[in-house]
Design a protein around this nucleic acid. Sequence first.
DNA 1: AAACAGTTTAGATATATATCTAATTATAAG
DNA 2: CTTATAATTAGATATATATCTAAACTGTTT
Lengths: 198, 198
Amino acid sequence: MQLDKIVKYHKALADPTRLRMMLILSQGEMHGHALAEKLNLSQPTVTHHASKLREAALIKERRDKNTVYFKLNPEFITASAEASLQFIFAKGVEGMEEQSSDNSLKETVLRNFFSKDGRLRQIPAQYKKKLIALQCIVEKLEPGVIYTEKEINEFIKPFHDDFATIRREFIMHQFMYRENDKYELNPQEMWTHWEYVK
Amino acid sequence: MQLDKIVKYHKALADPTRLRMMLILSQGEMHGHALAEKLNLSQPTVTHHASKLREAALIKERRDKNTVYFKLNPEFITASAEASLQFIFAKGVEGMEEQSSDNSLKETVLRNFFSKDGRLRQIPAQYKKKLIALQCIVEKLEPGVIYTEKEINEFIKPFHDDFATIRREFIMHQFMYRENDKYELNPQEMWTHWEYVK
DNA sequence: AAACAGTTTAGATATATATCTAATTATAAG
DNA sequence: CTTATAATTAGATATATATCTAAACTGTTT
């Protein structure tokens, strides 16, 4: 998983001192002592910040005799910014794998909580089973259709008397979304409750 | 100064939980309760992270009855990443202003520390004055020329007997840089010791 | 080999922050 | 007006981190 790398990149730049270091180094390479002087910091502090930047590969170093010169690693700086954006906007490419993994549990729920006529005997208390029961009902709705609250209630009633609770759970667990008392199915990707985010 | 904003942007994304929030929201808007559930966190924690993201303008919110829906603010996300890069790579556009501000101090140093024949009587102990004295000497070198250590020594001797110390100070204060025993002047922008980084 | 200069490591301290529970606020429903 | 639900605020705690001083290390010079 690359999440850690992206965090590391942002952490590296999430500090005013390190940003000023980067600014200074954008003018050319510089050694530790001079950096400490320009920033009014002790040398150990500069070492500390330099390690953070180096761990994120944002700077490179060269050594001449005793003194270590730092300079920017521009390719990596831009690459990291790019990667961060890609990460955030990567539409759920993953998360589809486990889709059908829990079939046995689904059958259990269908057998134990629904009667032959399709009514929900009772709302499962156990979290995962409740989600499955809700999903079994909600997937009988039409994707793309906009429902009124009344219509949703009428739809639920044949399954269970407490339509208010179930309607609320639909929203709560992201099966549907609501705006100005209009209800609509969310895309199925949003129903993925089994931790697809690693 | 925009440094704070850039720090805020990176801080906002410098946390695995918030990054996962962004990932989830990239699939569509979601309200606090559902986010808490997906992330296995308490609702106050989600509020906490949402504020951080909101302060950096990375997410937007809408409210329907009691529930607040979060969604990404994609323009700002990319704009911030762009601004961060621009900040880092902004070559010293600033810093040129105060160039000639301290002329009086320079005259003082010239009068008190240099004799009529141009020799440096003694190395000033006071930091700013020392820098001025060094600069007065170093600027007599040719930009672009690569010197050997021997040549540097010979150059300094007419100014001061302790050429070793002065040569070291040239490096230390970034007037010159050294690689494999070759010495070269740094560009004048790097001599700017009077805190151009705000 | 002794001294030195630049860097790094170790250890201490203070501030920041991620997370929780409990209490409060805000909006809606009955 | 009372209750209920979602969100926020307050307060507590534990971890992370920015900074310093002092000590150790490493390569250079004498």
